[in-house]
Structure formats: C-alpha cells, structure tokens
C-alpha cells in the first residue's frame, strides 16, 4: 500500500530525514515512533504530499506520489497533529467542506458525514460549532474529517496529543474499528504504550534515521533485559551513583526519575536480593519495591541512548 524509499529532507543544516525507508501493507498498522524532533511529522508531511523530499520517493499502491492534484491523494486521509478544523463552523459544516474537497456531494456526502460522526460518537453534536467542543471531542472530529472520502490509508500524526484518558481510549476504539475494516494506518507517537496497543509493526526514528523496523515481538527480542526492579527511594537526592550501580555484573540498565529507580535485570529471583543489599549497604532507604516486564521504552533507550520523552 505504502512504500517510503530512501527519503532525505533537510531544513538548512538540519537533517530531518536521512535515508528513511519503510513499508506499510494493506490493512497493516505501522507505528512511527520517536522522541519530539525525531522527524516523524516531516515523514508524515512527505507521505501526505505536503513536503517535497530532497531525494527519495513515496509510492502509493506501487505508483510514485505525484503533484498537488495527483488522484492517488484520494487514497490518503490525513489527521494532522494540530486540529485541522474551523472553530466557527459546525461539525457538519466542517465535514461537508472536507468532503467537498474530495468531490463528495449530495446524498453521498450526507451519508459519509453521518457515518463519520457516528464512528467518533459525535452524531448528537453535529450542528454545534466546533469551538464549543472539548479538546477530546475536537480530536475525534479531527479524525472523522479524514474519513469522509473513505481513504485506504490514514496518516495519524500524534492524534492523541493533549487529550484526557477517556477521549484517548475513545480514539483507540475508533482506530481499532478502522483497523478491522482493513484500513492501513500510519501512526506517529512518542507514547510507547499507544504503539504497543495499536501497531502491528514499529518503525523507530531518531534524529531523522530509522534505528529499528520490526514487529512488536521482533523488537522485544532486541531487549537486553526482560525484567525491571523498581525501587521507590525514600532518600533520593541528586548524585545517585547510577554509573556505579550499572557497573555491577548483574545490572543491565539503570534509570532514575525523581525517587523512582528502575534497574534492568535478567533474573529477578537470583539478582534482585544482591542489588537491594547493595543499596542498603550504601545508605539508601526504601519502603516499596515492585517489578514489571521491560517495555519498548527500554528498547528505545538501548537503541538511541535516550528516553522517548526527552
């Protein structure tokens, strides 16, 4: 369905995309993952035809994406990161306009508007001005506006930014419905849990380069650790000797945020007592200890040396 081939894009001296290649098959959900400024939005803009790459090409259904009026753009529905709606117009008026841009008219457009509003759960707010909507409702309508012309592929550029958990779940439900309908989704995010829930395959980008491109299970195999020991330190302060802890042979990774210390271990049962004793011996106090399986966050940390939320 979508093939991105060796895309390079620069803004002056800044390289936003450096030979980026990936594919998304029909009905597949591909996550484009990376921290802020990694080049995700640039890639979405190039795939949507908003930006012209310095080199490389984008193929839709095996054909290179042409100019502004290329009919192949009808196969794409863009959900931009910023809300792409007119606040003064009603939800229906917005959808009518965006439907008209793709040649929808009359009963066909009305049906498409009804379907889109129903999918995102806004049927009863269709006549209300968008500026009266909550942030979550706007996000849902932002998604609906990309569906009117029934595109085969949806480009979703961080569609859950700034929404409450309830609205986020509603958007996930909508996307899962679309996935079941066989749509191809290209989903950019820096929330690893979103990617883990939705995506069949993940393309991890950092500083304009693809650092990993694999299925979820394939990426899990890249993990150096499978378990995390989480210690809530009572007396956390600046200068925690993370490097010293990391030098222990059983410790695979160390991450500390505020009072929360995450230690990557291969075998919790044999290695955690020794690590906890090491902390006690150096005067670190704690009342609560827990553990969890390592996530893709750890993969990203391993691959790039920095956190997704940096």
């Amino acid at each position: 369905m979508l093939e991105v081939d060796s895309i390079r894009k620069t803004y002056g001296n800044i390289v936003a995309a450096d030979g980026v290649s990936f594919r998304a098959g029909a009905g597949e959900t591909v996550g484009l993952l990376g921290p802020n400024g990694a080049g995700k939005t640039t890639m979405v803009s190039i795939v949507a035809g908003l930006l012209r790459p310095d080199s490389g090409q984008v193929l839709i259904g095996g054909r290179p994406l042409g100019g502004d009026t290329d009919p192949a753009k009808r196969n794409i529905g863009l959900v931009p990161q910023n809300i792409g709606l007119y606040g003064q117009l009603s939800a229906r008026e917005n959808l009518a306009l965006f439907g008209a841009l793709y040649g929808l008219g009359g009963a066909q457009r009305k049906r498409a508007i009804d379907d889109a509003l129903r999918l995102v759960g806004l049927s009863d707010r269709g006549k209300d001005a968008v500026k009266t909507f909550s942030g979550g409702m706007m996000r849902r309508l932002n998604l609906a506006a990309a569906l009117l012309h029934d595109p085969q592929m949806l480009l979703l550029d961080e569609p859950t930014v700034g929404v409450d958990p309830q609205s986020r779940n509603a958007i996930f439900d909508n996307l899962e419905t679309l996935k079941k309908r066989g749509k191809t989704l290209l989903y950019t995010t820096h929330y690893m849990e979103e990617a883990e829930r939705l995506c069949d395959r993940l393309v991890i980008i950092d500083r304009g380069k693809v650092v990993a491109d694999d299925t979820l299970s394939g990426l899990h195999r890249l993990m150096p650790v499978t378990n995390l020991l989480i210690v809530d330190l009572d007396n956390a302060r600046d200068g925690f000797p993370a490097a010293e802890l990391r030098s222990l042979p059983e410790v695979q990774s160390v991450e500390i945020r505020d009072k929360e210390l995450k230690i990557g271990l291969r075998d919790l049962s044999s290695e955690s007592p020794r690590v906890l004793q090491w902390l006690v011996d150096r005067g670190w106090k704690f009342q609560h200890v827990s553990s969890e399986r390592a996530s893709l966050e750890t993969v990203f940390l391993t691959l790039t040396g920095r956190s997704l939320r940096d």
Partner: peptide, 14 residues
C-alpha cells in the same frame, strides 16, 4: 499554523 492548511494541501487540489 493550523492543521487546516495541511488538510487542504493533502487534498488533491491545485
């Protein structure tokens, strides 16, 4: 600066 422009440009319009 808003998503509207991106949406308009993404449509097959001259």
């Amino acid at each position: 600066q808003s998503g509207v422009w991106q949406r308009l440009r993404a449509a097959p319009l001259s």
